[in-house]
């Protein structure tokens, strides 16, 4: 790739750090920004700054939130007895789209992954146990990704939760194996919710 100078090179480099953006795309986005209307670029810059200062993680479930607690945790109509455990906040969005689930969430912040050095202490498992202590939650649906790491995390959690006498289930098969929850279409994901199966541990 041709070498750009100064601030343009910086911009391409920063864009290239984003997930899914290769060097060629970074260059394309950079030149799109250069050619764009200044007001449009101002809006993008403002939103970037704002999102970082305003959005934080819900103190209860770990979902992204503009307040101390997220909208779902604050919503009194949500069923407090069912908890859906997911890897990332984007999975909450995917499941919300199905409109199948009326309980609340717990976001782990990843999956067990020894290659990347992620163990149980690096996930929000302790927070999950604290949340379960008051006995309000009766059923847990484990909705980690249908790949090797997600399955391992599900099994680990299920073993840990089993002695607490909760109903524990895993999203039914039919989800694309080896994939990402967020890429499952709404109908498949909705069906997976209806057909969730209890986990044998």
């Amino acid at each position: 790739m041709a070498a750009y100078e100064g601030i343009i090179a910086d911009l391409i480099e920063e864009l290239g750090r984003l997930p899914g953006v290769g060097p060629k795309s970074a260059q394309r986005i950079a030149f799109h920004i250069l050619a764009a209307d200044p007001a449009e670029v101002q809006r993008l810059a403002a939103v970037l700054t704002e999102v970082k200062s305003k959005v934080r993680f819900c103190e209860i479930c770990g979902n992204v939130s503009e307040d101390v607690q997220c909208r779902i945790c604050r919503d009194p109509r949500r069923d407090p007895s069912i908890l859906c455990v997911v890897e990332e906040a984007k999975d909450v969005v995917a499941i919300e789209r199905t409109r199948e689930f009326r309980g609340r969430y717990h976001v782990l912040g990843g999956a067990i992954n020894p290659i990347d050095g992620v163990g149980p202490d690096d996930l929000r498992i302790r927070e999950l146990m604290t949340r379960l202590a008051d006995g309000a939650v009766q059923e847990i649906i484990i909705a980690t990704d249908p790949n090797v790491e997600g399955e391992a995390t599900a099994t680990y959690l299920a073993r840990m939760l089993r002695p607490m006498g909760l109903t524990i289930s895993r999203l039914a098969s039919g989800l694309p194996v080896g994939g990402d929850l967020e890429y499952a279409d709404e109908i498949t994901l909705g069906r997976a919710f209806e057909g969730r199966r209890s986990i044998d541990v």
Partner: peptide, 30 residues
Amino acid sequence: QRNALLKSAGTSRRAGSGPDLRTLDVWDEK
């Protein structure tokens, strides 16, 4: 994944700290 876990467990054992084997049973099962 299992090899990565075994390797890090070996490293911490040799360093004198207790290895973290909490997830090894799960990897064994898988």
